[in-house]
Amino acid sequence: MKNFSNFLLGFVDRHLTPSDVREFLLKEYEVLRDSAAGGELAALTSFLARLGWVESESVTEEDLSYSESDINDAINWMERLESDNVIKGGVAVVGAGMNLDILDAFDSDMEWVRVQAQRLLQHVESRRLKSLTNFKTEINAQQIFAERTALSVFFSRYARRHGDLRFINTAFKLNEWLLVDYRRIQGQDLKIRFLLALAEQENSAKELQA
């Protein structure tokens, strides 16, 4: 009985292993490399180099830092928020993932960012596949995909900056759900952004030994 149940569970209990992620990333990178161009592809290349998966100049922590104008924009975004929280009653504010990442990179001791990160973590863990589908401003499926990708990047980086494994744990899950949408999503920029999110995940996993 035990062997039979383990066989059944092994069949359905699927998740992405590190080698699955690596294989997927390199395969998609090869496809996009020939047709895409621009800063995000370069960023992906250097990220893959950092992971030791391609030969190229690798990205440094300094390359990942934000400019002063990015920081000012994020502070303005925070000050203009109508609510105290980026998510309330399952409804999220557009730009939360990206702006929280900028603010956390700027000052990793900000209590407000810490509270918002916890709220988003709880939201994603409790709503799972249905998380981040309702926004205060109406946005389309492509934009929702971009928002969820930005949140995944924020979680991976937050995990790394704060040594908090709970965030990489949720990033693993979020990226697995996003992978289902990736097949349907149009536009190379969005695809590259997701690949970058996966690379961020692997980078953090490597540092945190997860």
Partner: peptide
């Protein structure tokens, strides 16, 4: 804490 992913 939340449900642990198999990698963690």
């Amino acid at each position: 804490y939340y449900v642990m992913h198999p990698r963690v």
